[in-house]
Structures are given as C-alpha cells and as structure tokens.
Design a protein around this nucleic acid. Sequence first.
DNA 1: TGTATCTTTGACCACTTGGTTAAATCTTTT
DNA 2: AAAAGATTTAACCAAGTGGTCAAAGATACA
Lengths: 201, 201
Amino acid sequence: MSENELNTEQLILKAARKVFTHKGLDGARMQDIANEAGINKALLHYYFRSKDKLFESIFKDVIKTFFPQVVSVLVADIPLFDKIHRFTESYIDILAKNPEIPGFVFHELSKNPDRLIGNIRETGADIGIIGEQLQKEVEAGNIRPINPAHFIANLISMCVFPFIARPLLMGIMKMDAQGFDSFIEERKQIVPEAIIRSIKV
Amino acid sequence: MSENELNTEQLILKAARKVFTHKGLDGARMQDIANEAGINKALLHYYFRSKDKLFESIFKDVIKTFFPQVVSVLVADIPLFDKIHRFTESYIDILAKNPEIPGFVFHELSKNPDRLIGNIRETGADIGIIGEQLQKEVEAGNIRPINPAHFIANLISMCVFPFIARPLLMGIMKMDAQGFDSFIEERKQIVPEAIIRSIKV
DNA sequence: TGTATCTTTGACCACTTGGTTAAATCTTTT
DNA sequence: AAAAGATTTAACCAAGTGGTCAAAGATACA
C-alpha cells in the first residue's frame, strides 16, 4: 500500500471540505459527503459525532491553513514595495488554487460571526507590524500618510473580490473561464501597481 | 386605513426578502418567512407556488432594484474624475443601507451562476461606455492606459469588499459596529483618491 | 339577502434530514 | 487461534421539511 493513501478520517475530511466549501453548511447533506467519500453515512457519525462537529473541523482547518499563508508575507521583514508585490503574487496564487474558499469563509462568517473568536484570533494575525512599517516610510518621505486599515482593506479587496464575484465579472466583462484566468493573472501586475501609485508621494 | 399599509403579497415579499438575504436560500425556512410576515405557512404557497418561485421573485427584485442604481452613475455623461467620486459616494451609501445584499447575491450566484443570464443581463449593464471614456482620457493625456475591466474591478472591489468581509475586518482591525461605520464613511474619500492616483499620468 | 369568488387557516402528508443501533467484518493482542 | 477491540455497514427512527387540502372567513356581486 502506497504512502499517499488516505485513511478513513482523512478521506472524510477531504470529502467534507469539498462539499461544505461548495454548498455551504446549510446546503451540504451528510449523504453528499458520504457519497463523495465513498463510504456509509453512519461512518461519518462514527468519526465526527455530528454535522456541526464535522463542519467545525473543516472550518478550523480552512482558517488555519489559509490565514497564516496570507499573513506571513504581510508581516515579513522586507521593503514595503517588495512586500506589496510579493503579497499580491502569493495571495492571488493561493486564491487561484482555492477559488471557492473566500466565498465559503465570508458566507459562514456572516451567518455566524462568533466563529471568529475561536478561530482567526488564535492564528495571531497582528496588523500592528504593517502599520509601523507604513509609518516609517511616511517619515522617510517615501509615501503619503495613510490609515493602515484602509491600506490593507484596499490591498485585500482587489485581490480577493474577483474570486467572490467571479460569475458576475464573467457576465459583465463577457469573459469565458479561460478569459477569467488571464484576467486574474494580469491582476498580479495591476494590483501592486495601483496600490503603490496610490500611496507614493 | 392608511395608504402605506402593505397588502398580503407585499407583506410576504418583504418578509421573504429579509429571511432570504440573511439566511440564504438553503438556510431559509418557509416557516421562518411565515412567522416574519405574521401569517400562515399555507398562505405563502397560495401567493407563490413554491419556495423556489418565491426565492426567484426575491432574487429578481433585488437585482432589478440594486443594479440599475449602481450602473446609472457609471454610464452617466460626466467627467471621469467626477464620476469616480460620485460613483463611490452613491454606491457606498446604497451598500450601507443594504449591507447584506452583496453577500447574498454573490453566494447565490456562485451556487447557481445560470441565474445571471435571466436577470443581470436584462438590466442592460453595458461596460462599453466607460471603456470609451477611459480611452478618450488616455488620448487627451490625462490618465495612463488601463484595461477598463481592471479599472472597474478595482473600483467595485474597494467599495463592496468591506461589506462582504465585515466580521473579518472588524476582527483584525479591532473595530466595533460604530468603528466599522466610521471606517465605511472614510472610504468615500479614500477609495476615489486611491483610484484617481493610480490612473493619473 | 343570498351566492359566487377570493382569501386565510389548521390539520395533514410524503419525503428528506441528521442521527442511532445492533450486527457484521476486519485488526490487534495474547 | 481465540478473545478483545476497532471499524464498517444496513436498517431504522424521530424530527423537520416543503407542500396540499378541505373548510372557514371575508368580499364582491346579483
């Protein structure tokens, strides 16, 4: 038996992640997950006691694997303009590989904001560092003064939003799936340029 | 009896809109809607034959009242920089009054992209006009060349995203509800500034 | 006033849902 | 090999779901 075979628990988690992220907590059926995993429905309850418990595992896992990847670049000790380029590139790459994640997370979060407390907070995403870095660049006369919250909101908005609004964008821009991929690829240039131009003195 | 009393059909639509936009199609229960409207569940089926039919009415109505408001400013015959300021201001105002709409629309759209064809397309949102306007400004030497798709994506992203990501932003920015409102108000200045700086020669 | 039509309701139904259970099978331990 | 434990299954259950229906209340109309 090869090493990359999944045990039953991993198999369930993989199937559950796929079904939950595509259909949401309310839209997902335990039977869907069992089918996706190719197992009996009762086995889901053997490993994870309830639908809610299973969902909680998936949600925690998504947050814990997703968030640190994003934050690590933001808090790295590299020059600001480099950071903006690198962040955009790596973030868009991650999103392109997991295009359904943002919609999933924001939808579930808006239905139940309390999930934040137990999950995202403990990933230790600290926005303070980027604020200090911006402040230094302002004092050095390299950029105009800007509220760090808006800076980060602008940056993340332009990276994430196209993935959430994909069907709408494809509709009004008259793009097909391949056109959308090119569009996303272009944004690795467009977004950092726009951000840097907006803050440069 | 005063004129502003709602008839039963309007009462149902109002209740259904509230429940559907907050809980989504899958999360909404017909009983919830009946309770919200203060009527019997069977009456819902008397006016709208099924849950799907009722949902379709709501979704169509949301698109048809929301979209034109947004597009009208974009296609208006006013100078570009004015247009950017006015669009941001009016769009953010509309969103602040209906903060749950974008999440609702994008979630349902990503579960069922086909809804676009019958709904949004017929609102006649034509992106061509803004493309021409940008082209003229480029030729006049006022702005740098930019792909209209990215211009619009940037503009809309920065306006809409904070509403979709509200719980997350409040979490990482350590804002309370009032702080978030101020943050949104500030963006009426921040966003057009950022956009204009990013395209100015 | 009586009757035909529209509106509203409580009771009900078929089906789906998450969840349980007892038995069967496979693994590990002795 | 046999006992003990872990894993997997088919069959089942109670609660909840969208939806129906016959009858009761309103309303309009003759």
